[in-house]
């Protein structure tokens, strides 16, 4: 098949899927979830700097529209796989924030019982199949979830979040090829925030757009150039999700976005000077953009303010819950894994 025919076919297929526009309720829902991420992470960062939260903290501040726009294109029982930048994904898929916050605080009531921490806020009750911190390791898992769901005749869609950096791992190639040859219901969502720690995507990726790589797998692609716009992300992802659900196979969605904070708080010397670029992106705050949009549509802030108050309360409750929870016992470190001979370590009872 010529490249032209291939592109034409992708274009044609894309048109066949209905472009579903968002209802006002969905806009409000999007704002609610984005604001939750914003406040959850802002407070977590503050309290981390006070020494309340151990380990490193990878925030998705600046990427809220991309996360929530993609998650809202899913049904509740669809699956999702994420990565080290893990806080936004479960909140975007409407998880309860209390166990997420408690996990950051390393408490027994945390979503992973205090074993995972910031890089692993994975809530299986909302369809998460892991937030995995080895870059690229989630991609094959997402393929397997889609395969498994097909084998079981359930037809659930799997959304896989991964970064621009991850698209350079071998696992990316293997996962995309497998999904393509088996025509699996996966949506590969590349959160292209321009950087992998200190490495700009422009230097690490051989193509201009990561979405261009889909052609190598005869896979459909979507390129969202304005990832700060909730609606654009939603529409592109929804099209991919609908295509997957209709049995038409996987899509590679690339969303151009930006992380506002450093790669991770408290991870050695990871501070990288991104200069004016950062200043420019800070002017396009996804949460503000959506707020302005809704305000323009409705002309009344009442509901937005209610949402803002609601989120404040939810965050306070989550913090309260986390801080009042107990730390796990040392013995808990031996649960959830098959382990033998744990009683005879000297000085460890």
């Amino acid at each position: 098949m010529s490249l032209f025919m291939h592109i034409a076919q992708i274009y044609f297929r894309n048109r066949m899927v209905d472009m579903e526009n968002l209802t006002l309720e969905q806009y409000y829902e999007g704002y609610l979830r984005m604001l939750r991420i914003r406040k959850f992470e802002t407070r977590a960062e503050e309290n981390h700097s006070k020494g309340e939260i151990p380990g490193a903290l990878h925030t998705s501040l600046g990427q809220e529209a991309e996360v929530v726009g993609a998650c809202m294109a899913l049904k509740d029982d669809d699956y999702m796989v994420g990565n080290h930048r893990s806080h936004g994904h479960p909140i975007g898929k409407n998880a309860d924030m209390k166990p997420l916050m408690a996990e950051l605080y390393a408490r027994k009531t945390g979503i992973c019982g205090g074993k995972g921490g910031s890089m692993h806020l994975s809530d299986f009750s909302i369809g998460s199949l892991g937030e995995t911190s080895i870059v690229g390791s989630g991609l094959p898992v997402a393929v397997g979830a889609a395969l498994g769901s097909n084998m079981l005749g359930e037809g659930r869609v799997t959304l896989c979040f991964f970064g621009d950096g991850a698209s350079n791992e071998g696992a990316f190639h293997e996962a995309l090829n497998l999904a393509a040859i088996w025509n699996l219901p996966v949506v590969f969502l590349c959160e292209n925030n321009g950087w992998a720690v200190s490495m700009p995507a422009s230097k690490a990726v051989s193509v201009e757009n990561i979405a261009d790589r889909a052609a190598a797998y005869s896979m459909r692609s979507e390129l969202v150039t304005d990832g700060q716009d909730f609606e654009s992300v939603y529409i592109a992802t929804k099209r991919a999700v609908d295509t997957a659900r209709a049995g038409e196979g996987p899509t590679l969605v690339e969303v151009k976005t930006y992380r506002f904070a450093e790669h991770a708080v408290n991870m050695g010397r990871m501070l990288v000077d991104r200069g004016e670029e950062l200043e420019e992106w800070l002017k396009r705050d996804p949460v503000e953009i959506l707020r302005i949009k809704i305000n323009e549509m409705v002309g009344d802030e009442t509901r937005l303010k209610e949402i803002e108050e609601q989120v404040e309360r939810e965050i306070e409750d989550a913090l309260e819950f986390a801080k009042q929870s107990d730390f796990p016992d040392v013995a808990d470190a031996f649960d959830d894994v098959y382990s033998e001979r744990v009683s005879d370590f000297y000085g460890l009872s």
Partner: peptide, 8 residues
Amino acid sequence: PDTHLPFF
């Protein structure tokens, strides 16, 4: 011991 290192 033969168990993983936990976050806590």
